[in-house]
C-alpha cells in the first residue's frame, strides 16, 4: 500500500497528495498525521490537493476528520490547491467540507496558518467577524 509522505517545514506539516489514493491509503494518512502532529508539536497542517483530479465523499470525509483531529491537537488545517472541476463536482455531490479552511495555493495556505496563529496569540478576545475564507456555506 502507498503511503503519503508528510514533510515538516518550520511549524507546519505539509502533505502533498500526489497519487490516486485508495481508501486504505487515505485512512493511513489520517492516522499518520495525528501521530506527526503530536510528535512534532506543529501548529499548522497544509494539505495540498493540486494533483488530485477527483475528491469523492470518502476523501472529503477524510479531510474533514483530519481538520477536526488537528483542531483537538491544537493545530490548524488548511486544504490548498483544489481544482475548479473538483470544486464544482463537490458542490453538485452535496459535500460542503464543513469546518475546513481552504486556500488557493500553498503560499496562501501558509499565510492563513500564520495569520491564524497570530490571531490566537495576540488577539484572543477579538470576536469580530472572521474574514478568512472557510468552506462552510
Amino acid at each position: 500500500m502507498d503511503r503519503v509522505p508528510i514533510l515538516k517545514i518550520g511549524d507546519i506539516l505539509l502533505v502533498s497528495i500526489q497519487v490516486d489514493m485508495s481508501d486504505q491509503t487515505a485512512v493511513a494518512l489520517q492516522e499518520d498525521l495525528a501521530e506527526r502532529i503530536v510528535a512534532t508539536g506543529c501548529h499548522g497542517v497544509i494539505i495540498d490537493i493540486t494533483a488530485l483530479d477527483i475528491v469523492d465523499s470518502f476523501v472529503g470525509r477524510m479531510l474533514s476528520t483530519i481538520a477536526s483531529i488537528s483542531r483537538v491537537l491544537d493545530a490548524e488545517t488548511v486544504v490548498v490547491g483544489m481544482r475548479p472541476a473538483v470544486a464544482i463536482t463537490l458542490v453538485e455531490l452535496g459535500l460542503s467540507l464543513n469546518g475546513i479552511r481552504t486556500a488557493l495555493n500553498v503560499e496562501r495556505g501558509m499565510e492563513l496558518v500564520a495569520a491564524g496563529r497570530g490571531y490566537d496569540d495576540y488577539d484572543e478576545f477579538d470576536d469580530g467577524p472572521d474574514p478568512a475564507p472557510t468552506a462552510s456555506p
Binding site: M82, A87, L90, L104, R108, A135, P137
Partner: peptide, 9 residues
C-alpha cells in the same frame, strides 16, 4: 460555494 471550497471569496 465552489470558490469557497477552493479558498476564495
Amino acid at each position: 460555494v465552489a470558490a469557497r471550497l477552493m479558498g476564495a471569496d
